[in-house]
Amino acid sequence: MTARVLLYGKPGCHLCDDARAVISRVCAALDESFEERSIEGDPELTSRFGEQIPVTFVDGRQHDFWRVDEQRLRLALSQPPPQGG
């Protein structure tokens, strides 16, 4: 099963820590999974997201950056994932 939530961040980022806590709480409550990827050491990801981390994707679409709104994330995850690919 592929995680519905993907968090891009990097070590030492306090906003990433805050986002991870919200995502962990929401995903645990809704029995969903999430993955986390560091942009550190990846020039493409750093160029794309470097000024916006943390960046959150839900079902492959950018959902939030800088801060994760718990209610907005719950709402997004209450919708069924898109079919196909």
Score class of each variant (00 low, 15 high):
residue 70 E to P: 01
residue 33 S to K: 15
residue 68 V to E: 03
residue 16 C to M: 11
residue 42 D to W: 05
residue 60 G to N: 10
residue 12 G to W: 03
residue 13 C to V: 10
residue 42 D to I: 14
residue 82 P to G: 11
residue 44 E to K: 10
residue 53 I to M: 07
residue 85 G to M: 08
residue 16 C to Y: 01
residue 53 I to K: 04
residue 2 T to L: 14
residue 39 I to Q: 01
residue 16 C to W: 01
residue 15 L to G: 01
residue 22 V to Y: 04
residue 55 V to R: 04
residue 54 P to M: 14
residue 52 Q to W: 11
residue 42 D to Q: 08
residue 10 K to R: 15
residue 4 R to M: 13
residue 20 R to Q: 11
residue 53 I to Y: 01
residue 77 L to F: 01
residue 47 S to G: 13
residue 74 R to K: 09
residue 56 T to C: 12
residue 83 Q to P: 02
residue 73 L to C: 03
residue 10 K to P: 03
residue 73 L to W: 04
residue 84 G to S: 09
residue 23 I to Q: 01
residue 1 M to P: 02
residue 22 V to N: 01
residue 38 S to R: 07
residue 63 H to N: 06
residue 30 L to D: 03
residue 20 R to E: 13
residue 56 T to V: 15
residue 32 E to A: 12
residue 15 L to F: 02
residue 68 V to F: 09
residue 22 V to H: 01
residue 84 G to E: 11
residue 26 V to G: 01
residue 37 R to Y: 07
residue 26 V to K: 04
residue 37 R to A: 15
residue 9 G to P: 04
residue 71 Q to E: 15
residue 40 E to V: 08
residue 37 R to V: 15
residue 46 T to R: 05
residue 40 E to S: 13
residue 6 L to N: 01
residue 67 R to W: 10
residue 69 D to F: 09
residue 66 W to I: 04
residue 10 K to S: 14
residue 13 C to D: 12
residue 71 Q to F: 06
residue 67 R to K: 10
residue 3 A to G: 05
residue 23 I to N: 02
residue 42 D to Y: 03
residue 36 E to Y: 04
residue 47 S to Q: 11
residue 16 C to K: 07
residue 20 R to D: 08
residue 42 D to C: 12
residue 24 S to E: 15
residue 58 V to P: 00
residue 67 R to I: 08
residue 47 S to D: 12
residue 30 L to S: 04
residue 16 C to S: 10
residue 37 R to G: 07
residue 65 F to G: 01
residue 17 D to N: 09
residue 54 P to A: 11
residue 7 L to S: 02
residue 31 D to V: 15
residue 5 V to K: 02
residue 44 E to D: 13
residue 67 R to G: 00
residue 71 Q to S: 13
residue 34 F to I: 06
residue 63 H to S: 14
residue 32 E to F: 04
residue 3 A to N: 11
residue 79 Q to W: 03
residue 84 G to F: 02
residue 64 D to Q: 15
residue 77 L to G: 01
residue 18 D to F: 05
residue 50 G to M: 09
residue 9 G to Q: 11
residue 5 V to N: 02
residue 34 F to Q: 04
residue 39 I to P: 00
residue 24 S to H: 10
residue 13 C to Q: 09
residue 27 C to K: 07
residue 11 P to A: 15
residue 49 F to L: 08
residue 58 V to C: 06
residue 37 R to N: 06
residue 11 P to C: 14
residue 68 V to W: 10
residue 81 P to W: 00
residue 41 G to E: 06
residue 28 A to P: 00
residue 50 G to Q: 09
residue 17 D to L: 14
residue 51 E to C: 05
residue 22 V to W: 05
residue 75 L to K: 14
residue 13 C to I: 11
residue 80 P to S: 14
residue 83 Q to N: 09
residue 75 L to A: 15
residue 85 G to N: 13
residue 28 A to D: 14
residue 83 Q to S: 14
residue 14 H to V: 15
residue 34 F to R: 03
residue 85 G to I: 05
residue 16 C to V: 09
residue 41 G to I: 10
residue 24 S to K: 12
residue 50 G to R: 05
residue 21 A to P: 00
residue 43 P to Y: 05
residue 24 S to L: 12
residue 17 D to I: 12
residue 73 L to G: 00
residue 39 I to Y: 01
residue 41 G to N: 05
residue 54 P to Q: 12
residue 45 L to A: 08
